[in-house]
C-alpha cells in the first residue's frame, strides 16, 4: 500500500462527479439552458478553466484520450498545465491531435478539423449569461430566458450597427439553440459559430465561477442572431497562414519587429502542424525550413 494519500480518479470525489453528471444530463436534455451546479474549488484560479476542468473530470474515463487547447494552441500555459493535471490525477493518455482525442477541452477555439461522433468538446466559460451586460439583474435575466424575451439581445446588435455600421461583435457572438434558448458560446471568435451548428460532437460548457453548465447535443441547430438586412458573417482574412498556407481558417497576427512587420499564422496549431508535415508550405514557412 502506498503511504501517500492518493487522489480519487480525476481529482473530484465520486459524489461531486455524480452531481456534475446530473447537471450535464439536464443540460443536454434542454439544449442551451444554463443549469446551476455546485461548483467546487479547483487547484487553479478562477478564469483558468475551473468550469471546464470540472466537466472534464466528471466525464473522463481511463480509456479517454484528452486534448486541451488554449486560443487554438496546444502548447500555451493553460493548455499544458490542464493536460498535465489530468495526466497526473487520471493517468489518461493525452494528445495534441484533434482526430485522436475523445475529449477536447478548449478555451476560445473550436478545432479546424471537423469533429466526429463520439467526440466531446468541453468549453471553459467565463460568463455564461448572454444578457449579462444588457440586464445586470440575474433574477430578471432568468425570467427573460424563461419567457423567451430576447428582444434585448437584438438591442445590442442594433447598437453595434448604429455605432459601427455593421455588427461589430466578433467573439461571444450570441446564438439561438434549437429555436429556443439564446446562448453565449463562450469567448470563441464568431468565426467558429457555424461549426457549432449540427455538429456531430457533443458540446459541453462549464462556468466554474458562475456555477453554470450548459450543453449543445450532437446535431442541434445553432443559429447566430442577426438582422434581415444585416446578416451574420464570419471574419475574413486577406492572406493565408504564413507557415502552412491554409485558407478559410482562423488566423492570429504575430508581430515580427518594431517596423510594422507581421505575419498571420493558424490559431489552431495542430491543424497547422499536420498541414506542414503533409507538405503544405506558406510564404514564411520556406525560410524556416531553410534555416
Amino acid at each position: 500500500m502506498n503511504a501517500v494519500a492518493q487522489y480519487n480518479f480525476a481529482y473530484l470525489d465520486e459524489q461531486t462527479k455524480r452531481m456534475i453528471r446530473r447537471a450535464i444530463l439536464k443540460a443536454i436534455a434542454i439544449p442551451g439552458y444554463q443549469v446551476p451546479f455546485s461548483s467546487r474549488e479547483m487547484p487553479m484560479p478562477y478564469g483558468w478553466g475551473t468550469g471546464g476542468v470540472q466537466v472534464t473530470a466528471s466525464i473522463i474515463g481511463p480509456d479517454d484520450v484528452l486534448k486541451v487547447i488554449d486560443q487554438g494552441a496546444d502548447d500555451t500555459t493553460n493548455a499544458v498545465s490542464i493536460r498535465a493535471f489530468f495526466a497526473k490525477v487520471a493517468q489518461v493518455e493525452t494528445t495534441t491531435h484533434t482526430a485522436d482525442a475523445t475529449i477536447i477541452q478548449t478555451r476560445h477555439r473550436i478545432p479546424e478539423k471537423p469533429l466526429g461522433q463520439g467526440q466531446i468538446l468541453v468549453y471553459q466559460v467565463p460568463i455564461p449569461e448572454p444578457l449579462r451586460f444588457l440586464e445586470p439583474r440575474e433574477t430578471e435575466t432568468r425570467k427573460m430566458h424563461a419567457l423567451e424575451e430576447y428582444g434585448l439581445m437584438h438591442v445590442k446588435l442594433y447598437e453595434d450597427i448604429a455605432r459601427h455600421g455593421r455588427i461589430a461583435t466578433t467573439y461571444a457572438y450570441p446564438v439561438k439553440v434549437e429555436g429556443r434558448y439564446v446562448m453565449d458560446p463562450s469567448p470563441t471568435p464568431k468565426f467558429d459559430n457555424p461549426k457549432m451548428h449540427m455538429s456531430a460532437a457533443l458540446q459541453l460548457f462549464g462556468a466554474g465561477r458562475e456555477h453554470r453548465i450548459y450543453a449543445v447535443p450532437p446535431y442541434t441547430e445553432v443559429v447566430s442572431l442577426d438582422f434581415e438586412d444585416h446578416p451574420f458573417t464570419i471574419q475574413h482574412f486577406e492572406e493565408p497562414c504564413a507557415l502552412c498556407g491554409a485558407e478559410q481558417v482562423y488566423l492570429d497576427e504575430v508581430i515580427l519587429d518594431d517596423r510594422g512587420g507581421h505575419m498571420y499564422v493558424c490559431s489552431d496549431t495542430d491543424n497547422c502542424e499536420e498541414r506542414r508535415s503533409a507538405g503544405h508550405v506558406g510564404t514564411l514557412g520556406m525560410q524556416e525550413a531553410a534555416e
Binding site: 428582444g151 438591442v155 442594433y158 442577426d226 438582422f227 434581415e228
Partner: peptide, 14 residues
C-alpha cells in the same frame, strides 16, 4: 425606441 419593436419580433434594422 426600437427595443419594443425588437421585443415583438422586428428583425429588420432599416
Amino acid at each position: 425606441v426600437g427595443e419594443r419593436l425588437m421585443a415583438v419580433g422586428d428583425r429588420n434594422y432599416g
